[in-house]
Design a protein around this nucleic acid. Structure first.
Lengths: 244, 244
DNA sequence: ATAGTAAGTGTATAAATGACACGAACAAAA
DNA sequence: TTTTGTTCGTGTCATTTATACACTTACTAT
């Protein structure tokens, strides 16, 4: 088994969208007193792990994602590296590190990645490991500097989303324009006019309408669209702008 | 003396503007054969160094900048972390590492920072240490993955510059609108119309014209402006957009 | 059959962008 | 002292882009 680099880790901010709000995947962290077995504290953390010796950062991020969520081949992008020496000095964090990783340095630099998933694709059995979705604006108490990491991830996501068409990564392969609009509204924190939104996406040739409609909805069914990465790559030069 | 973290470093991409092109500060790296004293190879590298134990990343970047260029209190921003295990595996790099740092791991993850300076403020005696400015589009042969680092830095600089007023950091305190326009043109790689450019900056209240003109120029002297960080912070909400 | 819900669509107004040319002010050279 | 070369500073009109706004249609559930 490969050994780990003691002061370098990756943390993944996994974003999911449930057609209403943007959510982050978090895992419960619970410290129990070894003698009394009483819970000392409970909070949540991102999916993270140390980088292995001889492992690329991107590989490490993929590995963490695979090991902790079962997700593979999903959108994953590095956004910032957190290197404050105080980032693991919280009271809870010190207790935790002392118990779980007494052999490690307590100054660990962590490279932040964010990933985008269709949240319906995620394995439901994650809940057994107490890994749950939380709305980004209703986060539970978080360990380490993970609140800061999530905020920075969100900031990067917003900038990226307003410059490049990556919103599709949060939706199923086939989606409706209303779903797409709600996604932009949820992430960018704006309200958009439906007609104007449609006018805008009508110019994006890589958004392809299918000969297919929504089924099983109690209203006029919407046409479904797919995103063509292929067409996008060929017409990339065209200006993309959903400025905040 | 503090010890270093063996597999973590910072590299600084120092940008300067000479009123014509955007430049990067690079330091010569020369490997000599220890016996014959003949030069084995010559190339250039960014300003970089390992992070010290117990040192914040941002502190490390400030320290590197201070030690290697004498610069302090200048714009400095982290932009990306380079963690490919191949990044120091070039032939030259291996020779260099073997000679200079035989005790270190050859998988060093490096956190990239870029900084912006008024290039006239930089100490001229840097040239004795063979640290020189190179235009970003005429770079010499570079060590490690520093070409990639500079390209990524530029990409980030462009995005940042088109979203926030940071161009002033590359100019003297008092500058003219033409200098500012040339700066945007050089970095974003565009040509702008002078009148339209002025129309745009006229709306930016934090660009304050002084009762003062250029002197010693062989043409109609231009009015000089300063950037007021103060006014900017108060009027930040206003949309800033120099989209590429 | 009816009620409820989201889909789909066009126009008119306002705002932003882009193209464009000439007189004024200075230093240097004649 | 005059001329030359150079950059500064300025306004308008045409085009493009953004914004505001309301009714009919298609489906499910009751």
């Amino acid at each position: 088994m490969a050994s780990i680099i003691p002061n370098l880790s990756v943390d993944c901010v996994v974003f999911g969208f449930d057609y209403k709000t943007l959510n982050v995947l978090l895992t419960k962290r619970e410290l129990k007193d070894p003698e009394t077995d009483k819970v000392v504290f409970t909070d949540y953390t991102l999916q993270g792990h140390h980088v292995l010796v001889g492992e690329n950062l991107d590989e490490a991020a993929c590995r963490v994602l695979r090991d902790k969520t079962g997700l593979e081949d999903i959108y994953l992008e590095q956004f910032y590296t957190f290197g404050s020496k105080e980032r693991m000095q919280g009271e809870k964090d010190q207790l935790w590190v002392k118990k779980m990783f007494p052999m490690f340095s307590s100054h660990v630099v962590s490279v932040g990645y964010f990933s985008l998933v269709d949240s319906l694709k995620i394995k439901p059995d994650l809940q057994h490991q107490e890994t749950l979705w939380f709305p980004v604006d209703e986060l539970p108490p978080l360990g380490f500097d993970h609140k800061e990491i999530i905020e920075k991830a969100l900031e990067h996501l917003r900038i990226k989303l307003s410059r490049e068409p990556i919103g599709f990564e949060l939706l199923p392969e086939k989606f409706t324009l209303t779903q797409l609009q709600k996604l932009y509204e949820a992430i960018l924190g704006t309200k958009m006019d439906r007609r104007n939104f449609r006018k805008k996406v009508a110019q994006m040739k890589y958004l392809i309408p299918l000969d297919e409609k929504q089924t099983g909805v109690a209203h006029k069914p919407a046409q479904v669209y797919i995103f063509s990465k292929d067409v996008y790559m060929r017409t990339k030069k065209e200006k993309f702008d959903f400025s905040i």
